[in-house]
Design a protein around this nucleic acid. Sequence first.
DNA 1: CTGAATCCTGTTAGATACTG
DNA 2: CAGTATCTAACAGGATTCAG
Lengths: 115, 115
Amino acid sequence: MPEFQHDGKVYYNPIEFALSHIGGTWKMPILWRLRDKTLRYGELKKDIPHITHKMLTTQLKDLEASGLIHRQVYAAVPPKVEYSITEKGKEALPVVETLIRYGKKLMKEYGIEHP
Amino acid sequence: MPEFQHDGKVYYNPIEFALSHIGGTWKMPILWRLRDKTLRYGELKKDIPHITHKMLTTQLKDLEASGLIHRQVYAAVPPKVEYSITEKGKEALPVVETLIRYGKKLMKEYGIEHP
DNA sequence: CTGAATCCTGTTAGATACTG
DNA sequence: CAGTATCTAACAGGATTCAG
C-alpha cells in the first residue's frame, strides 16, 4: 500500500485518510447531530455537553474546511450561525452509524448501560 | 447522553468508547491484516511498512489487552510470536470495512489513486 | 451569541539504543 | 526475532481572556 499526499500531508492508507476527515473525539458526534437537521452553534454546544467552547469551534471550522458541513451566518444582533450537513458530509454517516453500533455493542458486553 | 466510566477513564458517548478500542492511526490497519489469517510480528511489520517498531509493539499490546487479538508465543530460538484476531476482534471488522470504503471514496473524489 | 487568541498541560508518537 | 527503555518533538485539548 503506497503512500500518497493531500494538502501537504502524507497518508499511508485509506483508513488514515478517512480519519483525518472524521477522526478525533468530536467530529463524528457533531456530524451525527447534524444528520437530519440544522443546528445553531449554541444548540450544538448544549447537545454535546462535555465539549468545550474551543473544541466545538475548531472542529466546526475543520468540518467546514473539508466541506462536510455548511456554515450559514445571519447578519443580526445578536449573531446567529447555523450549521448543516452537506451531501459530502452525508457520505460519512454510514461510518458514524457503524461505529455507534459497535460502541454500543462493546458497552453492552462490558455491562455499561446505553445512554 | 450521560457519561460513563470504564477502566478508570471517563467516556461521553459510544463513539468515543469505540474509538478508545480501535481508534488511532494503526489499530484498524493491524486488525484488517489479521482479519483472515495469523501473522508473525515480522510479517505484520513488513506488511505495514511505515509503522515504527515501537508503534507496532505498543498497538499490538493494546489490542491484546482489550481482547481483540490473541498473542501466541512459541518457545524457540529465535523467538516466534504469532498474532491472530479473536471473535471479539471480528466484531470490529464491519467498522474497519466501512471506514476503508469511505476512505477510498474520499480519495477518489480528490483524484487520488487507490493503493 | 459566536468566535479568535493566548497560554499551559498531558498525551502520542518518532528516533535511538539496549536485552533475552 | 521480538520486545523494552529513554529521550524528545509535535499535537490535542482545556482554561481564560478579549472582540464583533
